[in-house]
Simulated scan of single mutants.
Amino acid sequence: MKPATAAKKLDVYLPATPEEFRAGSITREELTSLQADPPQWLRDLRANGPHPKNLVAAKLGISNSGLIRGEVTEALTTEQINALLAEMPDWLEAERTKHVEVLREERRVKSLHADRQREREEASGESD
């Protein structure tokens, strides 16, 4: 697989990986090996970053879109993420609140769909 795909599967920021990782293709066996027994560079990258945007967003408790609205365009290190959380700028607080509301609404809609599906199944079972 391409290095970008492997980096995504490993949840690491591709430009921060070693040149030998970015230079060639990675087999499924190599990926499995990296996941099972990560080398030091991978452990360091996962612990300290820089992290890909999806992980930055998750660590900040916001959506990827929230990162864009907050004008966070670069990968951040763990230290930078922790500093943002400690500082809690207005935009981050607002995005965290918005993200919680969106997740709550998604759970509500999912539950509503599940209830309707159960009702349909019960109704179709009664008519037999």
Rank of each mutant, 00 (worst) to 15 (best):
M1L: 09
K2E: 08
P3G: 06
A4V: 06
T5H: 03
T5N: 06
A6Q: 02
A6C: 04
K9W: 00
K9H: 01
Y13L: 00
Y13K: 00
P15L: 02
P15F: 00
A16M: 00
P18H: 03
P18C: 04
E19G: 04
E19V: 07
R22I: 04
R22N: 05
A23G: 02
G24F: 00
I26H: 03
I26Q: 03
T27W: 00
T27I: 08
E29Y: 03
E30S: 06
T32L: 08
S33E: 15
S33P: 03
L34G: 01
L34Y: 11
D37R: 12
D37H: 11
P38F: 01
P38I: 06
P39H: 06
L42H: 05
L42W: 04
R43Q: 10
D44Y: 06
R46L: 12
A47L: 05
A47C: 02
N48Q: 06
N48H: 11
G49N: 00
G49H: 05
G49A: 03
P50C: 01
P50A: 01
P52Q: 01
K53W: 10
N54Y: 11
N54P: 04
L55G: 02
A57I: 08
A57T: 01
A57M: 02
L60W: 02
I62D: 07
I62G: 08
S63A: 09
G66F: 06
L67W: 10
R69A: 14
V72D: 05
T73F: 12
T73P: 01
E74K: 15
A75R: 00
T78H: 03
T78W: 03
T78G: 08
E79L: 10
E79K: 13
Q80R: 08
N82G: 07
L84C: 02
L85G: 06
E87T: 14
M88C: 04
P89T: 11
P89Q: 09
D90I: 15
D90H: 06
D90K: 12
L92W: 04
E93L: 11
E93W: 13
A94E: 12
E95L: 08
E95G: 09
E95T: 10
R96T: 07
H99M: 07
V100M: 11
V100A: 13
V100F: 08
V100C: 07
V102T: 11
L103Q: 13
L103N: 08
L103Y: 11
E105Y: 12
E105T: 14
E106W: 05
R107Q: 14
V109D: 09
K110P: 06
K110L: 13
S111F: 10
L112M: 13
H113P: 01
D115H: 13
R116G: 10
E119A: 15
E119W: 15
R120W: 11
E121H: 04
E122G: 12
A123Q: 15
G125H: 15
D128W: 15
